[in-house]
């Protein structure tokens, strides 16, 4: 589904990603871990095309298409979704309106019909129920006045409604209490199928205990320096990132 080859990304003239290679197959869930400042969030932003995250070298192929040629919204319509580490507040725009506008914009871009209002509301309410969020959220402005946990869960509601093919979760587990973490993990697990892939950026093994990733990668100084199965996360939890220095030495 996703093939990243020798990716270099600069922010404000400083190279953050320095030659990253990654392949994610259909239905796979990959976790990316790594110390602060290693480039994890930069990778997420670069994949969805945020301005200021300049790809200076390398390629990204998504379902056979050159992802880097697409505008931000075209990438969304193609099926790439980034759950932000710090979801943005949009005062004055209620969640239901925003979600429906986003869904219809994507469907229109794909040549599909607009979603029926009743079906839409039904689908959103179902997702809210799964994530134990109050229906009043639909009338509230996007993320405005939400607690940290509500914002993160709201990202998963969006993910569930928009049904992307590739979801990148940027530290969605940070700031969540144990119950909220379980809810988010359950929300993600419900969405897993053979056609949908995930890249989960996290610092902690506890989310991965619920998600059971297919592969775990360690990002350091803009490159993937270690890849492995679930046991790699356990090792990081035990030893931290100190072993990276030993490896590089």
């Amino acid at each position: 589904m996703l093939k990243i080859n020798n990716l270099h990304v600069a922010v404000g003239g400083t190279e953050i990603i320095k030659g990253l290679d990654l392949e994610v197959g259909s239905g796979e869930l990959h976790a990316i871990m790594g110390p602060n400042g290693s480039g994890k969030s930069t990778l997420g932003y670069a994949l969805v095309g945020r301005d200021g995250y300049a790809v200076t070298e390398g390629s990204v192929e998504f379902e056979g298409r050159d992802l880097l040629e697409l505008e931000i919204e075209q990438r969304a319509a193609a099926g790439v979704f980034l759950a932000l580490q710090y979801p943005v507040e949009i005062p004055g725009v209620n969640n239901a309106y925003f979600l429906r506008a986003a869904l219809n914009a994507q469907r229109k871009a794909r040549g599909e019909d607009e979603v029926d209002s009743i079906d839409f509301l039904k689908s959103v309410r179902e997702q809210l129920k799964i994530l134990k969020m109050d229906e009043s959220l639909l009338k509230r402005a996007v993320n405005e006045g939400f607690s940290g946990g509500e914002k993160k869960r709201n990202e998963i509601v969006q993910l569930a409604v928009l049904e992307p093919k590739l979801a990148i979760l940027d530290e969605t587990d940070s700031g969540l209490d144990i119950d909220a973490l379980k809810l988010v993990a359950e929300g993600v697990n419900r969405l897993r199928d053979s056609q949908r892939s995930f890249i989960v950026i996290t610092h902690y093994q506890r989310l991965l205990d619920y998600l059971k990733p297919d592969r775990i990668h360690v990002l350091s100084d803009g490159r993937i320096v270690e890849s492995g199965d679930a046991s790699l996360a356990e090792r990081l939890e035990r030893e931290g990132y100190a072993f990276l220095d030993a490896t590089e030495a």
């Binding site: 945020r50 505008e71 919204e73 969304a76 943005v88 004055g92 506008a101 914009a105 871009a109």
Partner: peptide
Amino acid sequence: DDLARFYLRSRGLDDNQAISLLKYGFAAA
């Protein structure tokens, strides 16, 4: 807000739609 604009575009709205929605949100309050 550029970040808000990016956020809306990352959900599928084109830039004009994103700008319009942000303006609406600001004004309708």
